[in-house]
Design a protein around this nucleic acid. Structure first.
Lengths: 295, 295
DNA sequence: CTCGATATGAAACAAGTGTTGCAAATCCTG
DNA sequence: CAGGATTTGCAACACTTGTTTCATATCGAG
């Protein structure tokens, strides 16, 4: 196994000074690290052929308060490996410091981890599937209300620079939905919604489904109400150490989708962007010191 | 997380038929699978905001004898995952080296790194400075046009849930700027702009400065035109492997600011959120539970 | 050997575990 | 809006947990 941190090292280091029973316990722990976190101490002792008390004695011998300290250590290591990332461990490190001042650090570390986890194979496959569906569509309608407006709008904004496929279902005086009037089965609706799910979003999505419009979703859970009605979907984390949910991973997903779509026909994308640049330049939208952008 | 086997599927499958409390428990388990094996049921229930009995009831609802059955299942899954960790790490590295289809992977890794880099001490200090300035303000005006609209709006949206300090300088027919009419030197303008910088944003910011309104900025560079006119600022990366700039780090910054502000008076924030919840509930904005499918 | 110290096993302990039964609250439905 | 069925919170339950205590066993030095 990989390094499990300080406790493991300490066991190895002090192994020679242990009594036979302590060594038996220590050896079992070293060779079955995961079990430490997954079964009770008594069962661990039984499997190691050792008295329960020996496990406690081992902990004290290592300078710890009790066996619980050992378990915490191995739990964290296991969580870390299962996550494939260090977000939680960092969180714990800072837990000792002031609750307030470390918040920013904890939030950023956690966000970084949540986005990194999106690059696991399954997520990538789902991203690709959604991108494929969007690429095949004649027109893409984008729906995201309340907190998800930011993501919906950003996706729509970028897509607008790339062409005229995108229609944003939002607008003053609640007229946004009218966009679906002329939508049909060659079109796709991209729905973005996280818990708590806005009722209106679901209603519009169901309406779209009845009209045979394809539906893809960015949402937060396998049990999101959107899962049942979409052909493809991407799940992203929304948990945060604050009182509200985070939309940063969802925005990242949105940007990746834009990237995948633009990447399908790089030349066409470049041309479209150049035309957009000219348009905006002639309207004097931006400060003239425009740094050229290309890849 | 990835496939955890039968129990997980069964939870998803029967989710719609569950009572609200069961759903809450189920949702927490789905989103924190590892914890099931690593902490006691009572603690799990506490973290899920649910009665201990609800966990037992969930198990029975799924046709299992008791919660212990659930735990066994997730323990096994976790053991398996931890074992396969090394293999997955290799797989992940390989995925990164692929050129074409690896775009999504590269983008996500890069975003993750850009956000992690925001947690360096200097960035944290700047975040804190901006948060302090915002907290001291009587009113916070939020300005972000074009691509930055998403970030501006999201910040404003969250702040609206926390109180009425925030005013979004945007609106139909270009009337958004009118909000600055009554702004004064006790107020602060939060400007968000990245290259290329929208001319209108700079004009409004300069106007605000003439009116002695405090200015803080989220922008992308030390040489951004916003740096010269703001009292405090936060820099975030915008580089991306696509044709466009990324706003994900900027959104992360915005969320951290919201978190820091809400954290200053946690009780007041909680009260405000609760009031917002009640308001939205009475308007029936959200699905309170997943409605059982009619017909 | 014998003595002192250390190591081990077994039993007792409080604390916390998962579960259950019951009453209050909530929700439908007629 | 009453009545019946669900759903929910609460408290008690028997049981297991990790720890501690103490008596016994083991060892090494004289």
């Amino acid at each position: 196994m990989l390094q499990q941190g300080a406790v493991r090292d300490r066991i190895v280091e002090r192994f020679d000074a242990m009594s036979p029973q302590l060594q038996a316990a220590a050896r079992y722990i070293l060779e079955h690290s995961q079990e430490v976190a997954l079964v009770s101490m008594r069962e661990l002792a039984r499997n190691a052929g050792v008295q329960p008390a020996t496990m406690t004695r081992l902990a004290k011998f290592l300078g710890l308060a009790g066996f619980e300290d050992i378990r915490v250590h191995f739990s964290d290591a296991l969580r870390l490996r299962a996550d494939g990332f260090a977000a939680r461990a960092i969180e714990r490190d800072n837990a000792g410091t002031e609750a307030g001042s470390g918040l920013a650090h904890r939030m950023l570390q956690s966000l970084s981890g949540q986005i990194a986890r999106l690059s696991e194979p399954e997520s990538l496959a789902r991203l690709q599937a959604v991108a494929d569906r969007l690429a095949a569509a004649r027109r893409v309608y984008v729906l995201g209300l309340r907190s998800c407006h930011s993501v919906a709008w950003h996706f729509h904004y970028v897509m607008t620079l790339l062409g005229d496929k995108s229609v944003h279902l939002d607008g003053p005086a609640g007229t946004g939905v009218d966009g679906l009037l002329r939508a049909g089965d060659q079109d796709v609706l991209l729905v973005i919604s996280i818990s708590p799910y806005a009722l209106q979003t679901l209603e519009i999505a169901r309406l779209a489904r009845e009209k045979k419009i394809g539906i893809v979703a960015i949402t937060d859970s396998e049990v999101s109400p959107l899962i049942g009605i979409s052909e493809a979907s991407i799940l992203c984390a929304t948990e945060s150490q604050t009182f509200f949910h985070t939309l940063t991973p969802a925005l990242a997903v949105s940007e990746v989708l834009c990237g995948l779509l633009a990447n399908r026909d790089r030349q066409a994308s470049l041309d479209a962007l150049q035309r957009a640049d000219q348009h905006l330049a002639s309207l004097n939208i931006y400060t003239n010191t425009i740094p050229p952008r290309r890849i």
